[in-house]
Structure formats: structure tokens, C-alpha cells
Write a protein that binds this DNA or RNA. Structure first.
Lengths: 209, 209
DNA sequence: ATTATCTATAGATCTATAGATAATGC
DNA sequence: ATTATCTATAGATCTATAGATAATGC
């Protein structure tokens, strides 16, 4: 029986994650979630007596925990090589349903009670931001990349991964993994023409600034 | 009198933009906007007989038009120099209230009628995305940057500018313009150590991939 | 007895409409 | 006459609660 409890509650969380992440906390009603599950709205209170807010909270915590696993595994599997680490993190996100947790952390958190808000922000930070930030700090310590505020780097990378979720909804967009590779190359190698592709005249310009 | 009509309607749009952009279409009620203006909720129907959706639509169109001016001016003032163009576009966004139009284009548009949705998406594209995309296309034609899907480049840059709005709300964050400069340098120069800072051993690694 | 659902409904909003009121400008 | 507001309220949701029902497992 314990098993069935977990199954049906997990199914509620699955649907809640899909809907909340796609259209936001305020746009989704308990009725939307119940309809999608084929049950009545009031039945959700059996699984989450605390109502909509508790359901959102539980959904977000489960999601953060899952991403924490995915991100730290990608980092650990490529110790000492930032590019591979980022590539595997991107592959992890590609394997998951669109994240959009950045916009979520802003607009949706504002709708929650101060305690829930604070707790979720904290968990999002330790689950996703902190490991990634550490990843950049270590790459800097190894001399692999130049000094730049690691908060900014982690924020940019997560932000861009989040953006992939939106980008892929466009018609005619390249596959997500190809976009992720281009983004990582942009971040690490930069866009300026250099090395063998570069003419002498361009080279002086490139390094003048 | 004509003047006063414009003033009070513009004031409604100002408040609507602040609130809608900060917390999203669904989170903000007409009462929130009216309260902030010090008027009653029903009075908004004098300015926008079409109600909440028309108000959002008008607010978004005015905002897109304003950003179109800002972006194209920044581009035109630095013709032939991508880095300066991007820097001035970033400065433009820093001068404006936080954008968050990316998340808006996703979650908020979904709440509108199909016609409004289509029209706004179209206007956002021509006002902001298209000029920036063209900017990257021309930099590629000049040989200033390497070939990469210009849609991706424009999307990344706008996305990161959008992210600055969120980033600056954190405690202890560096000033927005400093973060913008770092982001532009990351995009153009990349993060990898190279040029004079680079050792011979590292150089072979840098260019091997 | 426990699990997972249901029906019915109270109470709180929220959008939108109808029509009144007050101030300004011709 | 026009502009900009107001009061009052209908109608539609949405969240949450109370208590009933059906199925499963001991």
C-alpha cells in the first residue's frame, strides 16, 4: 500500500510540475491539475492538505533535488575538464522537461508565503547554483579559465540553459543539444575570430581593447 | 484636454508595466493597478474598455516600441563595431526598468487570446529580436565574429540582458553595467585563458578541440 | 482500518457592466 | 459636451472544508 500512496502522489507531482513549469503558479488552478489527472479538484487535498501552495512547494523541492543529482553527477563524471562538465550538464537539462526555474524563482515565488518563498529560494540555490558555481571556481583555480565573478558565470550558464527551454519551442529551431554546444563554445572560446582563421590586420584589432 | 487624456492613460500604462513586468499577467489584478494609481478598479475601463487584456496589450506594445528605439539607436551609433553596439544596448537596458520580456513572452502570452498572443509575439520579434539579429549577421559579414546561428546569438544576448534584471535583485550583486560588460566580454572573448596569459602547454590544449 | 476518491458548498476574489457624479472647457 | 472618476453589483471562478463513498488489505 505504501507503494501505491507514493505512486499516486508522485503522479500528482508529475502533472503539477508539467503545468506549473509551463504556465506558472498563478496561471494554473487546482482544477487544471485535477482535470489533467482525471480526478476532482477537492481530491488533491487528500495528497496535499496544505492546498495549492504546499503542492507547489513539494513539486519544486522534488524538482530541485532531481536537478541536484543530475548536475553533480555531470560535474563528478568530468572532473578537471570544464568544457565536458558543462556539456554533460547541458545534456542533463536536455533530458529533462523544460526547466524555466529562473522565471519561476521570480514570479512564482512572489505568490508564496514568505516562509515557503525563503525556503525554496534557499533550496534552489544549494541544489543548482552552488555546485555549478563551485565548478567555475575550480576551473579558475586550475587556470583553465580567466578570473570572472563565479556567481555571474554560474548565473549566466543556468540562465542560458533555461533559455534553451524556450528556444526549442520555436519553429525550425536546431536540436537542443546542438544549441547547447554552441552556447558552451561561445562562453569558453568567444565569438571573435582568432587563431588560424584570423588575418594579421584583424589580429591587431582583436587584441587592442 | 487632449494632453490630459494622454497623461492619465500613460500613467495607467506606467503602473501596469511596472506591475505586470514584475509579477506577471496572472498575478496582477486590475485592483492592484487601480490601487497603485489611487483610483477604483472600474475606472480602468474608461481608459481601456477592452479590460485587462487590452491594457496588457497596450502596455506591451508601448514597451516594445520604446525598446525598439533604444536598441536601434545603440546599433546605429556604433556601426561597424559589435562590441560597442552590444555595450550600448546593455546600457540601454540598464537605463530601463527590468525587462523580463522573455519570461513574459512565454507565460503571460499564454493567458491572452490567440489573436493578441500572435500579434504581440510578432511585435516583440520585429521590435527587439530582428534588429539585434541583423547586428550579428553584419558582424559576421564583416568577419568580426565567427559563423554561428544568428538567431541563437540574438536569443542568447537578449536572454542574458533579461537575466541581468533578475541578477541585480540579489544582495551584494555588482552594478548592472559591470555585469553587462563581463557578459559581453564572455561572449566575444570567451573564458579560456589565451594570448599573453597563456602558457605553451595550455595553448596546445586550448586549440585542440 | 486505510487509501483514494467523490459531492456539495461556503467564502473570497476577480472581471466586467450599468449608470451616477463632479470638474473642466466651450 | 467631454473627461475622468465613482458606486453598486452580476456572474464567473478559485481555494478550501466537511463529510460521504468505494475499494483494498488485514
Amino acid at each position: 500500500m505504501e507503494q501505491e500512496v507514493r505512486d499516486s502522489t508522485q503522479r500528482v507531482l508529475d502533472v503539477a510540475e508539467t503545468l506549473f513549469m509551463d504556465r506558472g503558479y498563478n496561471a494554473i488552478t487546482l482544477r487544471d491539475i485535477a482535470d489533467e489527472l482525471g480526478i476532482k479538484q477537492a481530491s488533491l487535498y487528500y495528497h496535499f492538505p496544505g492546498g495549492k501552495e504546499q503542492l507547489f512547494q513539494a513539486m519544486a523541492e522534488r524538482m530541485f533535488e532531481r536537478h541536484h543529482q543530475g548536475i553533480t553527477a555531470a560535474i563528478a563524471a568530468n572532473e578537471g575538464d570544464l568544457r565536458s562538465q558543462l556539456r554533460d550538464i547541458a545534456a542533463w537539462f536536455s533530458s529533462q522537461r523544460p526547466v524555466k526555474f529562473m522565471g519561476m524563482l521570480h514570479a512564482d515565488l512572489a505568490a508564496l508565503s514568505p516562509e515557503h518563498k525563503e525556503e525554496l529560494a534557499q533550496k534552489a540555490h544549494s541544489a543548482m547554483f552552488r555546485p555549478l558555481r563551485q565548478c567555475f571556481v575550480e576551473a579558475q583555480a586550475r587556470g583553465e579559465i580567466r578570473a570572472m565573478h563565479p556567481d555571474l558565470l554560474a548565473g549566466c550558464f543556468l540562465w542560458l540553459m533555461d533559455g534553451l527551454s524556450y528556444g526549442e519551442t520555436r519553429a525550425g529551431a536546431p536540436p537542443r543539444q546542438a544549441m547547447a554546444d554552441d552556447i558552451i563554445s561561445m562562453m569558453l572560446d568567444g565569438l571573435l575570430l582568432r587563431s588560424s582563421e584570423i588575418s594579421a590586420a584583424q589580429r591587431t584589432w582583436v587584441f587592442q581593447s
